[in-house]
């Protein structure tokens, strides 16, 4: 079907082109795909892969707790997110517990977020706002621990790591359904 359409439109097409297309019944090679992707090494992929999954896949080595997290927060984050992550200019990261099915839902990490892993993923990608990419993995785990601590989800000394973070059950973890379902 593809070939006859091609023949109709390009009547001058040569035998060589036809044999190439016929040979490539694998769609990954043909006139629309010159196959120019450069195969990457595992090390390269690891350097550009920031994805963290709710089951912990993608979380790196390292650890931290709320004690060191508090110190970091008060230097790196407090200006925009406020003391104890409340009342800052860029939105509260703590509080609002129990408001989600009330008349005025207040969405924060503690009241709304479904997974604790999102904190690590997002802080590593985007925070602190002015200088993203400057925190070590230990620091990100510590900040994650501190924000969870401020939401009464972990204790002050509890260590956050690739082991412990995915196991945390967030207060609102049951509060979500998927609007999308695959049509199979």
């Amino acid at each position: 079907m593809f070939i006859s359409k091609l023949m109709k439109t390009i009547c001058t097409c040569t035998l060589i082109i036809i044999t190439q297309i016929v040979a490539a019944d694998d769609v990954s090679f043909g006139v629309n795909n010159p196959n120019l992707g450069k195969v990457l090494s595992a090390e390269y992929v690891d350097q550009v892969d920031f994805v963290v999954m709710p089951n912990g896949d993608g979380l790196p080595q390292g650890s931290g707790n709320a004690v060191s997290g508090k110190e970091l927060f008060n230097v790196q984050c407090i200006a925009c997110h406020g003391n104890e992550a409340k009342g800052g200019i860029n939105g509260d990261l703590a509080g609002g517990h129990g408001t989600i099915n009330g008349p005025l839902p207040k969405k924060t990490v503690g009241s709304y977020w479904p997974y604790a892993t999102i904190l690590f993923d997002y802080i590593r990608r985007a925070m602190p706002y002015q200088t993203p990419g400057t925190l070590t993995n230990d620091e990100i785990y510590a900040l994650t621990a501190y924000i969870l601590y401020l939401n009464d989800i972990v204790t002050e000394k509890e260590i956050m790591s690739s082991e412990t973070l995915p196991r945390i059950i967030m207060p609102n973890s049951e509060g979500f359904v998927w609007a999308y379902s695959a049509s199979e």
Partner: peptide, 27 residues
């Protein structure tokens, strides 16, 4: 991936809260 990563912008933001307190993801 085998499933969604549940990023900040598909959970904390861009999710649609219903009046029963349940939020819809991936609308």
């Amino acid at each position: 991936t085998s499933g969604p990563s549940m990023t900040k912008d598909e959970t904390s933001k861009y999710s649609d809260l219903r009046d029963d307190g349940i939020a819809e993801l991936f609308t």
